[in-house]
């Protein structure tokens, strides 16, 4: 936007109000609406994967269960808790912005990012385990003589287990990628918050970034039981 355009209107207003919006409220509504629509596209993006998952889980249930069992569910559960905590710190940061508690806002943003990093770290451990166990699809993949849960003496078909692991890596990998993007967004938010950009009247970016973060949390809320907890009882 060229500066002259703002000058044309000549009114006194929040510098964050872009020229083509009439009011701040219109701008805020547009932004959050836009973000929700974007999240809709994200749902469909992951939706294609869920569709694939659903079909193969139906076809190869036993193999999926055996493969699922080889993943460390305790790590996955911990990660779920970590993300839930980060979602809490996000809403607290927004609340702090709304009530002019600058120190709290900054602290909560930092905490959110720490939780995010913790999530990625734990994910890394999980991936390393899979790598060591040769469970990464590809030439060195091996899943021989793994019993199917609740069918003693029957072994999982390695080809079908490989499909599970392919889906596991793509789904959690794309999710982790979203976490990385989220961390990027939050670094920017932290910087802007530090600069004092957010006030009780104007903190739309925090809300928009928060929506994204919560969404990534929701995806994980589904991934956790679907990938880690298939047929866990013995």
């Amino acid at each position: 936007m060229s500066d002259s355009t703002v000058a044309v209107q000549g009114e006194t207003h929040n510098p964050a109000l872009l020229h083509h919006f009439a009011t701040e409220e219109q701008q805020r509504n547009a932004s959050s609406f836009g973000m929700w629509i974007f999240l809709g596209t994200e749902v469909m993006f992951f939706g294609g994967l869920f569709c694939a998952y659903l079909i193969y889980r139906g076809w190869y249930f036993g193999d999926f269960a055996a493969a699922s069992k080889s993943i460390n569910a305790a790590l996955g559960g911990t990660n779920t808790a970590v993300l839930i905590c980060s979602s809490l710190t996000v809403v607290l940061a927004i609340w702090a912005a709304q009530t002019s508690r600058r120190a709290l806002m900054l602290a909560m943003l930092v905490l959110t990012m720490l939780f995010g990093l913790a999530f990625l770290g734990i994910k890394g451990i999980e991936y390393r385990d899979k790598f060591v166990e040769h469970h990464v699809p590809g030439p060195s993949f091996s899943f021989e003589h793994e019993e199917i849960p609740s069918h003693p003496g029957e072994y999982a078909n390695p080809r079908h287990a490989e499909i599970f692991f392919a889906l596991y890596f793509i789904m959690t990998g794309l999710h982790a990628l979203h976490m990385v993007v989220g961390l990027g967004i939050f670094s920017w938010l932290l910087w802007a918050a530090w600069k004092g950009r957010f006030t009780p009247e104007y903190h739309t970016p925090l809300e928009i970034g928060g929506l994204y973060w919560h969404f990534v949390d929701i995806v994980w809320i589904y991934l956790f039981p679907l990938l880690y907890l298939i047929d866990r009882h013995r």
């Binding site: 979602s87 809490l88 996000v90 928060g210 919560h214 969404f215 949390d217 929701i218 809320i221 589904y222």
Partner: peptide, 11 residues
């Protein structure tokens, strides 16, 4: 249920 909680209250 969890997703709904996040969407309704956090979002």
């Amino acid at each position: 249920t969890k997703a709904l909680l996040v969407a309704l209250f956090f979002m």
